[in-house]
Amino acid sequence: MGTPLGDFVRATRDSIQPDSLGLPERGRRRSPGLRRADLAARAGISVEYLTRIEQGRDRNPSVAVVNALADALALGPEERAHLRYLAKITGGECVAHTRPAPPPRRVRPSVLDTVRLLEPGIAVVTNRLGDILAHTSAYEAVTSGTGLLDTDTPNLTRYVFTDPRARDLFPDWDDIADEQAFDLWLGPSLENSEWLTAELASACGPDFTRRLNRHVVPRRGPLRLHHPTGCELRLVREILELPMDAQQLIVLLPADEETAAAVAGLHRRTQGRLRAIS
Rank of each mutant, 00 (worst) to 15 (best):
N67K: 15
N67D: 15
N67W: 08
L69M: 08
L69E: 01
A70Q: 08
A70D: 10
A72I: 00
A72E: 00
L75V: 10
G76L: 12
P77Q: 05
P77I: 09
P77T: 02
E78D: 12
E78L: 09
H82D: 04
H82V: 03
R84A: 14
L86M: 04
L86N: 02
T90S: 04
T90C: 02
G91E: 09
G92S: 01
G92Q: 08
G92K: 03
G92F: 04
C94A: 15
A96G: 14
H97G: 14
T98D: 15
R99W: 15
A101N: 06
P102I: 00
P102M: 06
P104Y: 05
P104K: 03
V107E: 10
R108D: 09
P109W: 02
P109F: 11
T114V: 13
T114S: 12
T114P: 07
L117P: 02
P120C: 09
P120W: 02
I122Y: 04
I122V: 12
V124I: 15
T126F: 08
N127H: 05
N127C: 09
R128Q: 14
I132A: 10
L133S: 02
L133H: 05
L133G: 01
A134M: 03
A134H: 00
H135G: 07
T136H: 07
A138E: 00
Y139A: 10
E140D: 07
A141L: 03
V142H: 05
V142P: 05
T143C: 12
T143F: 15
S144G: 07
G145S: 09
G145V: 03
T146V: 11
L149Y: 12
L149Q: 06
D150L: 09
T151K: 14
T153C: 07
P154S: 07
P154A: 11
N155L: 11
L156I: 14
L156A: 13
T157V: 09
T157N: 03
V160G: 07
V160I: 11
V160D: 01
V160S: 04
F161E: 06
D163P: 01
A166P: 05
R167Y: 00
L169C: 02
L169W: 13
F170A: 12
P171V: 09
D172A: 14
W173T: 02
W173R: 03
W173L: 01
D174N: 12
D174T: 15
D174I: 10
D174C: 08
I176Y: 03
A177M: 03
D178T: 06
D178H: 11
E179S: 13
E179G: 13
Q180H: 12
A181P: 06
A181T: 07
